[in-house]
């Protein structure tokens, strides 16, 4: 599978992370999204008229929506789809909302995108509070993840823009349940990082570091 990728994109990272977690190799084709806007080049528009990234190519399939890519990647790993399609759909939709709020605040703050920054930040805080409330109730029920006790594509879809919220000037300090949920995702085997999301250095034991 080929992923047209931009290293700083939260949506591209969703796909890279999902693939890594299930051990599916991707051939990454880096695009000069910034400053060249290469995703709007004639070649790329021919591939994806919407001019967005990521784009995932698997044989004849050309996928341009990250939820479709997540489903496609896990098609042989049903556990990652979750048990309740309605719940999974809900959180994939919620992730799109996070991209419009937290993701836009981030593009504004890093790459100077035009945005109604106060409004997108307010929307982001409202959504983070919803996420925190849900994850708190999940913890009360003994569940670590959005839809149960195992991570699904719902978690992977919501994680990047949430974890990168501080890039857009939105603090994650007030959300203890989100903090633990992010920690559980970062602790998964084969987790990969992206700029702005550090790996858990505590997972390296001191004996390894002095070896």
């Amino acid at each position: 599978m080929i992923l047209y990728d931009y290293v700083l994109s939260a949506s591209c990272y969703k796909v890279r992370l999902m693939a890594s977690l299930i051990g599916v190799p991707l051939t990454l084709k880096a695009l000069n999204f910034h400053p060249e806007k290469a995703h709007k080049s004639p070649d790329m528009l021919a591939l994806n008229p919407e001019g967005t990234l990521p784009i995932l190519i698997d044989g004849d399939d050309v996928l341009t929506q990250s939820p479709d890519m997540l489903r496609h990647l896990v098609k042989d790993n049903a556990d990652w789809l979750g048990n309740d399609p309605v719940q999974t759909d809900h959180w994939l939709g919620f992730a799109a909302g996070l991209n419009a709020s937290l993701g836009m605040a981030r593009l504004h703050d890093i790459l100077s995108y035009e945005a109604d920054i106060d409004q997108v930040r307010r929307d982001g805080v409202t959504q983070l509070r919803q996420l925190e409330e849900h994850l708190t109730e999940q913890r009360i029920d003994g569940f670590a993840f959005l839809t149960g006790n195992a991570p699904t594509i719902a978690d992977i879809a919501c994680f990047p823009n949430t974890a990168l919220a501080p890039d857009g000037g939105i603090s994650l300090d007030p959300y203890p349940s989100i903090r633990l949920w992010m920690r559980d995702i970062r602790s998964l085997p084969n987790f990969i990082e992206m700029p702005g999301i550090h790996r858990l250095h505590e997972l390296v034991t001191p004996s390894e570091t002095t070896a």
Binding site: V7, L8, I110, P166, D167, P195, G196, H198
Partner: peptide
């Protein structure tokens, strides 16, 4: 990538 790792 390198510079954005520094940003945080």
């Amino acid at each position: 990538m390198i510079f954005m790792q520094d940003r945080s």
